[in-house]
C-alpha cells in the first residue's frame, strides 16, 4: 500500500520532546532540536511496540535528519559546518515553519 511520506528531503523538522515510559529510540540530546531531512530510509516496524512484545505495526517511516552541531551543543568546539545525523521515526518529528 502506497502511503505518502509526511516529509521530503530538504524539509525542516523539529524533534518532539518526550520521555515515554516505554522503550523508544530518540536520544534525549536531539529532542527539541531543529534539523533538515537528508534521507528517507524506509519503513520499519515500530521499536516502541516491538520492544514490549508487540507486532510493531503500523510500520513507521524512518528519516535521516541532519542537525548543525553548534545548534545541538552550546559547547561544540568544531567549525560551524559540522553536522550530527540521527535516524528518527516520523512520529517523533513535527513540521517547522508551516
Amino acid at each position: 500500500m502506497a502511503q505518502s511520506n509526511k516529509y521530503q528531503t530538504g524539509d525542516q523538522v523539529k524533534v518532539r520532546v518526550d520521555s515515554p515510559s516505554h522503550h523508544y529510540r530518540t536520544p534525549t540530546y536531539i529532542q527539541g532540536k531543529t534539523g533538515v531531512v537528508v534521507a528517507i530510509c524506509g519503513r520499519y516496524r515500530n521499536p516502541e511496540s516491538l520492544g514490549h512484545g508487540g507486532d510493531g505495526m503500523p510500520e513507521q517511516l524512518l528519516y535521516r535528519v541532519s542537525f548543525a552541531q553548534n545548534s545541538v551543543w552550546d559547547r561544540y568546539r568544531g567549525p560551524s559546518g559540522d553536522k550530527i545525523l540521527v535516524d528518527i521515526y516520523e512520529h517523533w518529528l513535527d513540521p517547522v515553519g508551516v
Binding site: H22, L50, G51, H52, G56
Partner: peptide, 11 residues
C-alpha cells in the same frame, strides 16, 4: 527474543 526487547530490558 528480539533486539528491541533486549534493548528495552537493558534500559
Amino acid at each position: 527474543r528480539r533486539t528491541d526487547e533486549m534493548r528495552r530490558a537493558m534500559e
